[in-house]
């Protein structure tokens, strides 16, 4: 019964997205463009030396394709939440009998579902055309999916916490830029963490960004139980940490809400 209302939010936002489904599909063509650029880039690198830090060219492209898919599914949580706080629109949510965090989680998971499949559609067409299917055994698929989903959840609670900074600061967006750049370089979005210098590799693999991007993508291209369990442990720890942080920030932030005018 309790979860019914959040499922209803998920469903309503899903319907909302379906209104412009063709627009979403077309807008995610860009994910396909990115992966084409990566294919050309890494094909050139691959010709100069065969070693790609333990990745075959196909595995490297599938890895980067998967990071693009995960990125697409993340949504603009910081922009949305901080915008609602700054504009005062948050008042429409605070007077309803639900958890504001739960509402946003249901809303963005619904977004994630559509965006993930829209992006996956284009990336699969291109990567399948050049390299064929990934070397993934179907029996591992549920675990891969779990790893991706947990990564999306960790990212949601990190970005939600960043968005909640708008309770104290006029603009939370600059903080999300820092997070995005960390994700890009140290999270394994631009290239797998193994390619970074050793010291940076050690640090990067401990950061939450790695559990959002690098580990789920690597679990997809190179599944092993050890890798999956490492990913799962880190994701659960960071999830618990950022759920606590975001709940605390919301509780304190609500006392700071100031809505000017009607």
């Amino acid at each position: 019964m309790m979860l019914n209302k959040y499922f209803a939010v998920f469903r309503t936002n899903f319907l909302n997205n379906l209104v412009y489904f063709s627009d979403i599909i077309i807008s995610y063509m860009m994910s396909g463009m990115y992966i084409l650029i990566f294919i050309f880039l890494w094909s050139t690198v691959s010709k100069q030396g065969s070693d790609l830090a333990g990745y075959s060219l196909a595995a490297m492209i599938w890895y980067l394709g998967m990071t693009q898919v995960i990125r697409s599914a993340q949504g603009k949580v910081v922009h949305f939440v901080s915008g609602e706080i700054s504009s005062g629109n948050i008042s429409n949510y605070l007077n309803k009998p639900y958890s504001y965090i739960g509402y946003n989680l249901a809303y963005f998971l619904s977004d994630a579902l559509i965006k993930l499949f829209s992006s996956l559609f284009w990336i699969c067409i291109i990567v399948l055309f050049y390299f064929g299917p990934p070397s993934m055994e179907l029996k591992y698929f549920p675990f891969i999916l779990l790893s991706i989903l947990l990564g999306i959840l960790v990212n949601f609670f990190i970005t939600l916490s960043i968005g909640f900074l708008a309770f104290w600061f006029e603009d939370a967006i600059p903080y999300s830029w820092v997070y995005d750049k960390l994700m890009f370089v140290l999270g394994g979005m631009l290239l797998p963490i193994e390619i970074l210098p050793n010291a940076l590799q050690t640090i990067s693999k401990l950061l939450p960004t790695a559990f959002v991007m690098y580990f789920p993508a690597k679990v997809f291209v190179n599944f092993s139980w050890e890798l999956f369990l490492t990913s799962l442990t880190g994701q659960i720890i960071y999830l618990a940490f950022f759920i606590t942080i975001s709940c605390l920030m919301f509780k304190l932030g609500c006392k700071k809400v100031s809505i000017n005018g009607g």
């Binding site: 019914n4 499922f7 209803a8 939010v9 309503t12 319907l15 209104v19 309803k96 009998p97």
Partner: peptide
């Protein structure tokens, strides 16, 4: 972007 009935259905659950 949705008709009012969708918001009403949502509110019934909420």
């Amino acid at each position: 972007h949705l008709p009012p009935i969708d918001t009403f259905d949502l509110f019934a659950k909420i």
